[in-house]
Design a protein around this nucleic acid. Structure first.
Lengths: 123, 123
DNA sequence: TCGAACCATCACATAGATGTGAAGGTCAAG
DNA sequence: CTTGACCTTCACATCTATGTGATGGTTCGA
């Protein structure tokens, strides 16, 4: 598919799709006329990238964790230096802390909303 | 305490503490000489703010959810317009989605690491 | 009393994610 | 063959969270 369709199906501007490609987060083939051509899995990939960006990860880190997300798993062991593995571990732990922070505060919001509604059931 | 101590105890630059105050995320009293003076709970508050920022929330949103996080709960019902409640609900749901995204991808990283280690236990 | 170590405000700079628009190529339908 | 809707690259603008430095006031200990 061309960039316009991918844009619509992922709710992502064309500008950003080109930016993600520039950052190495997605790839595209080129048609004879120079147009980008995306395959079907690109849709999920873009959605995944957006989710991670929205959760506070910078493109640099997202690029590093992307190889972990390929299904079926294809691991390029030669690339997996022990330094990279350490980075991945650290980032995984950071993601855990981030998620915990989000859930903790989300629960606080829920409690707050419950308290407000208990006070004024109309709202 | 003065800004220097708060900075050290929260691992946050003085510049950012002043910025957070400007954004309405933290407050301070002023001493006679103009120096900012923080109370003990400010430490946790700053850490909380940083966690949320790191999880992708903009200061604008953080400011809105902060009233939910005060313990003991003190709800300013007059302020709680139904529009604000809707915003809070929406943000709460977004936080859930963010957390899910983080945990899903974190698990994928863990699986990847396990697979690599199964291949080469030395790493 | 002087210097070091704080503090204040203000302004300017940067980096990352994103918007916008210009200038021009491609293609299909009328 | 022209028009409109795509696409390309490139450059510039914007917003947010941050860094950095200038300039100057306060406090405290040698």
């Amino acid at each position: 598919m061309r960039i316009g369709e991918l844009s619509e199906r992922t709710g992502t501007s064309r500008r950003l799709l080109r930016y993600y490609e520039e950052q190495g987060l997605i790839i595209s083939r080129r048609r004879a006329n120079g147009y980008r051509d995306y395959d079907e899995p690109s849709v999920d990939r873009v959605i995944q990238v957006r989710g991670l960006l929205d959760a506070g990860l910078p493109t640099r880190i997202i690029k590093q964790i992307l190889p972990c997300l390929d299904k079926p798993r294809q691991i390029y062991f030669p690339d997996a230096t022990s330094e990279m593995l350490e980075t991945l571990e650290a980032e995984r732990d950071r993601m855990t802390r981030r998620a915990e922070c989000l859930l903790r505060n989300r629960d606080a919001i829920t409690e707050y909303l419950d308290a407000v509604r208990a006070y004024d059931p109309a709202s």
